Simulated scan of single mutants.
Amino acid sequence: MRPLIAIPARFSASASALRYAAEVAARALVEAVYRAGGEPFVMHPAAPFDPSRLERCDGVLLPGGGDLHPRHYGATSEHEALYDVDEEQDAFDLALASHVLETGLPTLAVCRGFQVVNAVLGGALNQHMERDHRHKVHPVTVTPGSLLAKILDSEETMASCYHHQSTATLAPGLTPTAHAGDGTVEAAELADPRGWFLAVQWHPEDTAATDRSQQSLFHALVRASAGGGHRL
């Protein structure tokens, strides 16, 4: 059986072919999980979070999305560039991230997912980058010997990015394992992991269909969710 990979849906004001507000997941993301041998489970982000809903799941993918409310990482003001902030989405994602970090459920965190994990562990974000990484594909340097380097079998990769925020303070529980040329932290791993975990600031799903190195991140998640752990 395919490992069941939970992907929290994103609230959307509208969607093609639907008459009203929708809950969505990026098709490229879902297809990347399926292509890796996983069964994507797009999860209704109902707050309060009920951990029992994950009992049948083998892994989690925390996807990209709108901005996390700044108060969740200790900020007292809001930048005018913030967009798509949703309190119910925030509450669910933060609780889900806390749960997987505590239990060690295999997890891949992408873009907003990385930022949510950083906030849960006590880190902070730059609310808006002077030179953002939206619609950018750029090289990323990967730390030798890191989990990410082993998965990619390389110390460099081309990252497809869409983010206007970045890590200001990396949480004490995270170790940076990739950087962009401007110094932006592009990936992180748990310093003391209870289970398989990887966070990337870019969107590997954007190019996974044609780039084997990006697809390898989803294969690694699915293998870990099937019981492979850190075995690559």
Rank of each mutant, 00 (worst) to 15 (best):
H135R: 14
P144K: 07
V85L: 08
P144I: 06
R71L: 12
N126P: 01
R131P: 04
H179Q: 10
L152Y: 06
V120K: 05
T177H: 10
R27N: 09
H44D: 03
V222D: 08
N118F: 07
T175K: 13
E31S: 13
H99C: 14
L68T: 03
E88T: 13
L105F: 10
G145L: 01
M129T: 01
N126Q: 06
A28D: 13
Q165H: 08
E23F: 15
P204M: 11
A224I: 02
Q127F: 15
S213E: 14
P63E: 04
L62A: 07
Y20D: 15
A36T: 00
R10E: 10
D67N: 03
V116Q: 03
A6D: 10
S12R: 14
D192I: 05
S154L: 02
E130Q: 12
P193C: 13
Q215K: 03
D84W: 07
V60Y: 09
L232M: 12
Q201L: 13
P48Y: 04
P48F: 04
V85W: 08
E39R: 10
S12W: 08
R53W: 08
G183W: 04
M1L: 09
R35E: 15
S12D: 13
Y162R: 02
T207N: 11
A81R: 14
L4K: 14
H179L: 14
L152G: 07
T107E: 07
Y73Q: 04
A191L: 02
S14Y: 13
V33P: 04
L148Y: 02
A32W: 00
H163F: 02
D192E: 15
H72M: 09
A13K: 14
T210D: 15
V222M: 11
S16A: 15
G74Q: 11
A119T: 07
G74T: 13
L152I: 14
A21R: 04
E23I: 06
D67T: 01
I151L: 00
Q89L: 10
F92W: 08
H99R: 14
M43T: 14
L108Y: 00
A13Y: 06
G66K: 07
T76E: 15
